[in-house]
Design a protein around this nucleic acid. Sequence first.
DNA 1: TAGTGGTCTAGACCACCCT
DNA 2: GGGTGGTCTAGACCACTAC
Lengths: 243, 243
Amino acid sequence: MLIQRPKPIVNQVADILRERIRRQTYLPGDRLPSESDLAQELGVSRSTVRTVLTKFASERLIIRRQGDGTYVNERVEDVASHYGGIWDFSRLIEANNYKPSIQTISIQERTATSDEAIQLEIIPQSNVISIVRLFCADDRPVIYATNLFPKELFNVDVNRLNGNLPIHEMVQTFYTDQISYVTSDIEATLVEAYLKEILHWNNDQPLLKLKEIFYSQEHKPLILGISFYDHATLRLRLVQSWG
Amino acid sequence: MLIQRPKPIVNQVADILRERIRRQTYLPGDRLPSESDLAQELGVSRSTVRTVLTKFASERLIIRRQGDGTYVNERVEDVASHYGGIWDFSRLIEANNYKPSIQTISIQERTATSDEAIQLEIIPQSNVISIVRLFCADDRPVIYATNLFPKELFNVDVNRLNGNLPIHEMVQTFYTDQISYVTSDIEATLVEAYLKEILHWNNDQPLLKLKEIFYSQEHKPLILGISFYDHATLRLRLVQSWG
DNA sequence: TAGTGGTCTAGACCACCCT
DNA sequence: GGGTGGTCTAGACCACTAC
């Protein structure tokens, strides 16, 4: 196996091994080659292989047993698609085996409410870009999401905004700062009439409401998101490590 | 600084540095000594220090900037208490600045329903221990939690069960297998009459319902938990890394 | 330019599991 | 005993940031 030097070797190794697990070159439950063998095959040091395997183990993609070997998690699909982020709704829809699509309902510039300004830590009444979108799973509406972007953070023309992009690509394109972590507050809420209509919600069951704040590495709030989530159609599952 | 050899050095280093951050020897926002300096001071290699700092960075306890230095996260308390698990309700209550207490409502042995048997991957109609508890924040009821333990997993007398223990201590005490990861399905639900009474819930607002399954390293389900969660009193906040 | 974190290597030794 | 993952070291070189 040839390793190209320009990109970090660890990432290349991670890509290769992740692909082998995804394509079932290593079947679920199978034992992987030993760390030394992998290192030799890929022409890298054992430490490099171990860095990758440690990351995979933390994602529950593999199981390591001292004195025995390293095994592919038998429930890769179960765990892999759900591990970590619940912020990328398109990916979440895909993970539930639906075809994701996005309808942009509105994009506009307006002044922030006082509460929004506090959440985003911006000057009261300063301008924000509001994007309202509807995420569908197999064309069935499942998430109604509002995202607020402080105007001052944009480094290019706001008019080039495209509602079809995932959040992290928007940030990559329009911001200087990049997303480092996300806080999500989860609540249950009754459904107001206008939402019932939009989400084709024909009963009185409650929905989930997510309030998410996306932060930069410097802890600056980059985006505020409020979403209404149909948990009956789209399972909201977290996978968390114990240790 | 003296390092004792019996315990893994990485853990010792982690304990020392975590303590310094907790006790604000390194103040929030402060720059830590360089990796080389720390390594020298503690008498370990730079790699060992880096292993620890990498872990801390993944917990958002610190921020690393190439070419600059390593800094203590200015919002340690914000992040540290919320990072990771939402399964340990007592800890969650503490993180929200309430005094946690637990009322054990019932402990009994019974046969599993067919659905429960499927979830726990046990033989239909085999026995489970059911523990129903009420978690209070400053003596106000906030979480109504049912936990099911397959009888066959117990390695000691069931009667020694004590409802006041956190889940992970119960498992440590009564099981051979230990908890490795947890899946949590989150839903919104209306509140039935008996629950309204127990939780002193005087309105028609919905609650959160959590279905959690605790797994061993071998992916064997160890515990099934169903909980009703008062999000109005107790904020359910996740902190997730982007990368 | 000096100092920081980021990447990577080569190799030693240990703890553990299998047969 | 032989092989596996777990721990730890020493040191090289690179990429980046501050000054």
